[in-house]
């Protein structure tokens, strides 16, 4: 265990843990959009920045990527942190003014307007969807493409992603709720915020007992294959299984 000081409070954290996790475990609020406990930290949204003191010097770091150290002093709401965080929030608000999650978070951080030119993007490029697809699901159907101001989340060639199994993890992890998933009848539709991409539709499997459509066929095929299960195992939905 490592002892560090966050906002004047001495807290304990496991070695190797990140400052953000240590703070959250002790109910100290640090805003963050691109972090998810199931996915490796990435440091994209920069909202979680905090001030740390090492060797008597103060500097700003992304707390999601900074491992705890013995005796580390962390300030999560110093004036410098708040000023920088506000600017980051203003940039996010300018990029995605129509996203509710962004509006709410801006309000929480006392940002009610932005001095930057408004755009109407619906994605903050945090890459959570891409990272979930690669790290958790293991299919890597989508990625961040292009560079600089043209950067966007997309499938290869903006086409229907063959590798996608329709599991919907991307929609589940999306911190700004911009990837949506809808099951209607026997079809699941996943909508990405990229207008150049087509809608991705997946056929759902019908349960042999209750007749409900319960999961995409492609996803079930993928699970049977990767875990070498018998294909019949998914003929019945979890609710009807004993």
């Amino acid at each position: 265990m490592v002892t560090l000081t966050i906002d004047g409070r001495e807290v304990q954290a496991e070695e190797g843990a990140m400052v953000l996790d240590a703070a959250r475990d002790n109910n100290i609020y640090i805003p963050a959009l691109c972090s998810n406990e199931a996915i490796k930290p990435y440091g994209a949204c920069r909202l979680c920045l905090v001030e740390i003191v090492t060797n008597g010097k103060e500097r700003l770091v992304a707390s999601c990527l900074y491992p705890v150290e013995e005796g580390l002093i962390v300030k999560t709401n110093s004036e410098r942190v708040m000023n920088n965080r506000r600017t980051i929030m203003e940039l996010l608000l300018a990029r995605c003014p129509s996203l509710e999650v962004i509006q709410d978070l801006a309000k929480r951080l006392a940002v009610d307007k932005t001095p930057f030119k408004l755009e109407d993007k619906r994605c903050i490029l945090c890459g959570l969807c891409v990272r979930a697809c690669e790290e958790v699901v293991g299919v890597s159907a989508i990625s961040l493409v292009n560079r600089g101001i043209d950067r966007e989340m997309a499938s290869p060639f903006y086409e229907f992603p063959d590798a996608c199994i329709g599991c919907g993890s991307c929609a589940y992890v999306c911190p700004v709720e911009t990837i949506t998933l809808e099951d209607v009848g026997d079809t699941r539709t996943i909508t990405m915020p990229n207008p150049k991409m087509q809608k991705t539709e997946f056929k759902l499997k019908k349960c042999k007992i209750c007749g409900n459509y319960w999961a995409p066929e492609k996803q079930l095929d993928y699970i049977t294959k990767t875990l070498s299960l018998a294909p019949e195992i998914f003929d019945v939905c979890p609710d009807c299984r004993e």
Binding site: A141, S143, R147, P156
Partner: peptide, 14 residues
Amino acid sequence: APLSRVYSVATFFK
């Protein structure tokens, strides 16, 4: 390697 990664790299560099 996933096609998405190859595509990502191919579109990244000018």
